[in-house]
Design a binder for these strands. Structure first.
Lengths: 228, 228
DNA sequence: TTGAAAATAATAGTAATACTATTATTTATA
DNA sequence: TATAAATAATAGTATTACTATTATTTTCAA
């Protein structure tokens, strides 16, 4: 449990920094729990305020609307995964082994890792799996992208692409493979749980080991190196 | 231009079969155009009725709500792709070549293909790319799945998985590769257009050739056979 | 310690959304 | 041509996505 980590995010994502006040932290905490519970479509600031015993108007002073809150949570998540990848790969020389650690982190981010009191990482992971892509599947994607709302995801993706290129500098699609690993990690957990015909892996509770194995197989097969 | 194709879909998807009346066909036609134009979040039946010069109540007699309409459009699209794959692979013996045709069809579905008067397939393709996954990323996914709302997608995915297994019967992840090809086809067109840092391919207008090439590379590399 | 500023809570209000209901009118068909 | 079915017109309701105003509490600097 590392207390005191502060995830650093684009200031444009919020009206007031929620990490700087106790009400802000409660907004983060309860929005994660409530979106996970009722889904993003049914979620709104009135219900959130009710659940956290505050008022709608107070929540609106932190986030412009629920879409910005979702982007905030998604950014928070990827920045946190990025931080985990950094500390987990710090002393590893071999790019192959670093890529393996990256895959493990992607799949098991929420387990056995430093945690922040006001964020339940395991619930946040489930939320990202179910709702994450809605952050950029909107009509405002280009404007939002210009504002830098997806920087955390893009930076992480490019960090992973660099490792991929280290593993095999001839591989032509490092960025695509990187983003595909992120998407697959989330999609196939979701498929295993809800649409099992769309995958070949099984997940039991929070054991995503088969997903990890599959991603390793895909990545190393594509990079033309058998696993160490 | 093939006139008279009727895409067959689960009757539970609608209250009245929109393919059976001219108002129904206008609902399909205009909902595709309007969702593409303003995005699914802003879309509603009142705006649709206004645009197509009918009334909200009339639209509600065809579809329970806009989410069911989206599922309908997504199902329609995959059923149509499935039909295209069938006719395009009909006389091809080699599974490798069939897989190539499948990939081409996924990427270029909307071009040079039989069309149905009330559906602009090219716009529908863009809609599916931008909004498609919202059909199953909801709290009701399990209930909807039980009702068979995703049968078309699952059947198509399993059809492609069979071809993959024909190409390489030792490959352990045929369903995952199949669904991943679908997701990648759509995601990387979207990324190239809106979040280019997340991919390595470029698309120009409706030329998705680089996406096709990448999918071929991924598929055949994973299946351990160099392309013919 | 007190007084100003900032943050939050309480309350109310508005325009739009996601529907349902009722009745009138048009169209199809037997 | 009568009847039923489909559609249009209209109205209405509960909820949503906000904004505005004022009251109360907290912060923290002089």
């Amino acid at each position: 449990m590392a207390i005191g980590i502060k995830i650093s995010l684009n200031e444009k994502l919020y009206l007031r920094d929620p990490q700087e006040s106790s009400l802000g932290k409660r907004i983060i905490k309860h929005s994660i729990l409530l979106i996970d519970e009722i889904g993003f479509e049914s979620f709104n600031f009135k219900k959130l305020a009710l659940q956290m015993e505050s008022t709608e108007a107070s929540v609106y002073r932190y986030f412009e609307n629920k879409h910005m809150l979702l982007i905030y949570l998604v950014s928070w998540y990827w920045e946190w995964v990025s931080y985990l990848i950094d500390i987990n790969t710090l002393n590893i020389e071999s790019p192959q082994r670093r890529l393996k650690v990256i895959i493990k982190t992607l799949v098991f981010a929420s387990k056995d890792n430093p945690s922040i009191e006001y964020v339940n990482e395991s619930v946040l992971h489930r939320l990202i799996i179910a709702e994450g892509t809605k952050a950029y599947h909107t009509k405002e994607v280009d404007k939002d992208n210009t504002e830098g709302f997806f920087l955390n995801y893009k930076k992480l993706s490019s960090k992973v692409a660099d490792v991929i290129s280290e593993v095999n500098s001839d591989f032509q699609y490092p960025h695509a493979l990187a983003s595909n690993l992120f998407e697959m990690a989330n999609n196939h957990i979701y498929f295993a749980q809800h649409l099992p015909k769309l995958t070949d892996v099984k997940v039991e509770g929070e054991d995503f080991g088969e997903v990890e194995k599959m991603l390793e197989y895909f990545a190393f097969k594509l990079l033309g190196c058998e696993e160490e």
